[in-house]
Design a binder for these strands. Sequence first.
DNA 1: CATGAATGAGCGTTCATTCAT
DNA 2: GATGAATGAACGCTCATTCAT
Lengths: 196, 196, 196, 196
Amino acid sequence: MRKAPRQQRSQVMVNTILEAATRVLAQRGWANFKTNEVAEVAGISIGSLYQYFPDKLGLAEEIRKRHLSAVLAALSNSAHGEAATTLELRVTRLIDGVIAVHAVDQALHRVLLKEVPFVTVANGEEFEREYQGRYRELIAVSAGAIPNASDEVAARVLAAAVEGVVHAAARHGELKSALLKRELAHLVIAYLRVRA
Amino acid sequence: MRKAPRQQRSQVMVNTILEAATRVLAQRGWANFKTNEVAEVAGISIGSLYQYFPDKLGLAEEIRKRHLSAVLAALSNSAHGEAATTLELRVTRLIDGVIAVHAVDQALHRVLLKEVPFVTVANGEEFEREYQGRYRELIAVSAGAIPNASDEVAARVLAAAVEGVVHAAARHGELKSALLKRELAHLVIAYLRVRA
Amino acid sequence: MRKAPRQQRSQVMVNTILEAATRVLAQRGWANFKTNEVAEVAGISIGSLYQYFPDKLGLAEEIRKRHLSAVLAALSNSAHGEAATTLELRVTRLIDGVIAVHAVDQALHRVLLKEVPFVTVANGEEFEREYQGRYRELIAVSAGAIPNASDEVAARVLAAAVEGVVHAAARHGELKSALLKRELAHLVIAYLRVRA
Amino acid sequence: MRKAPRQQRSQVMVNTILEAATRVLAQRGWANFKTNEVAEVAGISIGSLYQYFPDKLGLAEEIRKRHLSAVLAALSNSAHGEAATTLELRVTRLIDGVIAVHAVDQALHRVLLKEVPFVTVANGEEFEREYQGRYRELIAVSAGAIPNASDEVAARVLAAAVEGVVHAAARHGELKSALLKRELAHLVIAYLRVRA
DNA sequence: CATGAATGAGCGTTCATTCAT
DNA sequence: GATGAATGAACGCTCATTCAT
């Protein structure tokens, strides 16, 4: 962001811009994300937009930053309710969390992760690592005894598999299907059991 | 495509264009896919390009159509070697096939499926159904007895999970990791066993 | 220039653009030199302009290149009429040449040399050296015998002095004043005589 | 200027602005002279700047006005030291003065005279006349007897010639070359002698 | 008076597409 | 059919200037 918004008026403006930009980005995709339209939707002038954001990409990155924070927060919350005693319960909770994340604004999520370029590769990978953390925990818990060398790979496999399934479901509007959720849980649990 | 190329000369031209376009699309991505560059790379005039393709998107869609056909064919081939007797072997073969598909030109594959817009949703779904066929077979074979109502969902879950894992691997250049392949196989087999 | 104009049509277009751009540049100055106005004045589309010139500066530089060539040519011509026997005649001719150069389009000349940035410093200096060549000749001829170490500096002084006077005259519309011309000639000759 | 600053506080503000603007103008040139940067450098708000100056050009003109006054003052000073008895001494002093003027801040001088537009032509000419005064004196002194009709023109020629040489020298960073200074003095003296 | 957030006309440039040759 | 010069709407972004606080 170009300048820190000090006054209250500025804070409002930045939020207005970000909200409008989020809407436009989700609706149109990165390729058709136009700064002038953002300003129009936000009801402000294009000049004001550029007072707070260095350029188009900077604006989108700020949106992504906030969105991914929210995603990780939501995932964390879904984990730390009452202590989950059974593996089934743990897995169900994780899946619920992931689904919840995609349910909020799947289009935005998709655009932010697949279309908006990552200027720094590291930036995207940092989120990925944090994101996979939950799966690593799951594997650590389910593995009866000693940590295995393949645990790291297993966490990545699990994360990618769940992501793949939830993304596909989101694309088809099946995010709320109980049947699908059950099958996905089976998949995860079966894998964890086999590894134990 | 704008017109069916009847004559041989035209056929050659269409192929030339498609090859050049494929190269450009894979290299530059959809956002930087420029018709003028395609014509230049193909060594023909931009006018000729528009003789055979209605617009930029039409050109990309033709590329996708051909690519997806090739993908399905490759997948089919990987299935019908010598009769696969064990479940492990079947699964390994399927995974090998999927990996092979992504290995050939992962950049192109990615662009075609994630960036180039689907004008008709149906268009993408048709391929998806066919693609899931292999997974349906797997479930049918592994299920000991009677077909279950959840088989259809299971196939979709399995397809999406494998896709997710392989895509993620491709993105990180780990497509050839034997360890990853093994874990992915475990995931699939564990799931199939649990369902049986 | 972006692409070499092969066809006759292109040649015409390039000339049309350059003529319009020259007019606009002379009239408005570099700061208000707008590519869209050039296109409008030329009666062509802005796209066509960018087909032949890489950017605004490239266009201006092409104009400068051609103008400076014309300047040097004019100066050369003014030198090589009948053999000038007397020093007075030589000096008069050189001054006439310089005045003629500025008389054609003094505004353009000014803009091109003082406003349009020189991307490469060398570029401007090359012209300057060639331009000073005439003065170096003059000094060589007028010096009776041995070349002096200060000849080079003297040429620069002479060139800059004549330039300064003619520029100032141009600015005040006195380029045709015979009186001024005579005084300038006296200045030059006096200096040459003193050095001899 | 928009309003005469009566109070002391205002005087300070105006000076602060002008100093900052001078620095920015010299550093960036007229084309990149931005009012917002001036305000920032001055440590005041852009609103305050517009309280005292009607617009960007007005600000630059005020700077020019003050600079040219300083130039004339410096030139006057250089003339009225101890009485200069010989012509050589007089000429040397004048040249020293002109060089000194350009040496102080040649970038600013250049920008102010060549880039910042003169809204009224008269504005520039007034300075020019005063500036030429010193040369008129020189001619008057050196001419043995009766004033000549061409004296006025000669003064202009001399002024423009010296200006041209010093400007060129400044552009090439040769303002301190003793050799150049000597040759310039020879030029001036030779001319004055011839006219006597 | 001072502030600085807000404005918006307008710039340079791109690139999908057309159509005269 | 083939060509490629020509088109022009549309984009991202700047910066002189205003005016509510």
